[in-house]
Simulated scan of single mutants.
Amino acid sequence: MQTATCTNLRIRSPSDVRVVFHAVLLDILPMVTRRLDSEERGLILPGSVYVWEERGAHAEITGVGIERWTDGIRWGPSRVREGFLFYHEKPPSHYVFPGGIFPSHRQHASQELLIKQTYTAFVDTPRGQRKWHLIAYFTEESVDRLSCIDDYPTLSSLKVPHGKYKSARSVKGRPDHIFNPDDSADSGESFSHLQYVAYDPRSTASSISARSTPSPGIMHAP
């Protein structure tokens, strides 16, 4: 069975993403190499983080990569914030089948609606440049209890080479410095950390602001 790249982790900024990517590149953390099966999807929890490589043109030769991410969860439209895309899980609904009415697959597992946070970057690997994705899940209720990169010395001490993980969004005509800041801005001291504040569906504005570091927790590592 595949496990998440890490668990109980809150991704606060693109700087955190680059640390996780670098840990995967160094084989400190595992990469997800195929689509999640039904049992693995059932293990998605607040704090679950997955890193996967997009299936490229030479996938038939290398056998590496996933065409697209599927988690079996119904999501609303995306909202953009500092290089991330955020999605809200749609409220549980019932489906009518012959012989009865059955709940959607997540209704029995949790009443907390998940939020999905995604980030995409181009990465220089020994096999050439590849497109990597990070998917992080959390809830409004869990955001303050999840751990962060700073709570794990193995991750917080990693020195990430500048420019090695280039945001795919900066390639699409957006200012590069927003998604790939220089070394001084990427130290973690001056980069604004993200917080997801409860979303008001009546408002079209994003409701993400700065927050403090959460308390330590548990992270999965191979």
Rank of each mutant, 00 (worst) to 15 (best):
I73T: 08
G63Q: 02
S187E: 11
N8R: 00
G100M: 06
A210E: 15
T213M: 08
F191P: 00
T139Y: 01
W75A: 12
T118K: 05
G163H: 07
H22M: 08
L26S: 11
E189K: 14
R130V: 07
Q129F: 05
R18V: 03
P214H: 01
S215W: 03
P103C: 10
R74K: 03
Q2M: 12
V19K: 06
I218G: 00
D176R: 15
S190P: 00
R74G: 01
K159H: 07
I61A: 15
S212D: 13
E53R: 14
N8H: 05
V32A: 11
F86L: 14
S187Y: 04
Y50S: 04
G72C: 08
L194E: 08
S167I: 08
V123R: 00
L194V: 12
P153Q: 12
L9A: 03
P216Y: 08
F179D: 11
S157C: 07
W52G: 04
P91K: 01
V96Y: 13
S93W: 05
D124V: 12
V123N: 02
R55T: 12
D71Q: 01
G173S: 06
E82I: 05
H22K: 11
C148K: 00
A23F: 10
R18I: 04
S93R: 06
G128M: 04
R127S: 15
T118A: 14
H193M: 04
L29H: 10
L85I: 02
S207C: 04
T125W: 07
A23S: 08
E82Q: 11
P222Y: 06
L36S: 06
R211G: 15
R35C: 14
H220N: 04
V80S: 14
G163K: 03
P92M: 01
Y95H: 07
S209Q: 08
W69R: 01
D151I: 02
E140N: 11
A185K: 10
Y196H: 14
I101D: 07
R35I: 12
A57R: 09
D144S: 10
D27C: 04
P216F: 10
E89P: 00
L155T: 03
L155G: 01
P214E: 03
S170H: 05
L9S: 01
W132M: 02
F191D: 07
D27P: 00
R202C: 06
L155W: 02
V160L: 09
D183V: 14
K166H: 04
P153T: 14
R174D: 15
M31G: 05
Y199E: 06
F179S: 05
D200I: 10
D150M: 03
K116T: 03
Y152L: 14
F179L: 09
H105Q: 11
R10M: 10
P181K: 09
I66M: 08
T70K: 08
G83E: 02
G63N: 03
C6M: 15
G128H: 01
T120R: 13
P14I: 09
V96T: 15
T5M: 08
G83V: 04
D27Y: 02
Q129R: 15
E54P: 00
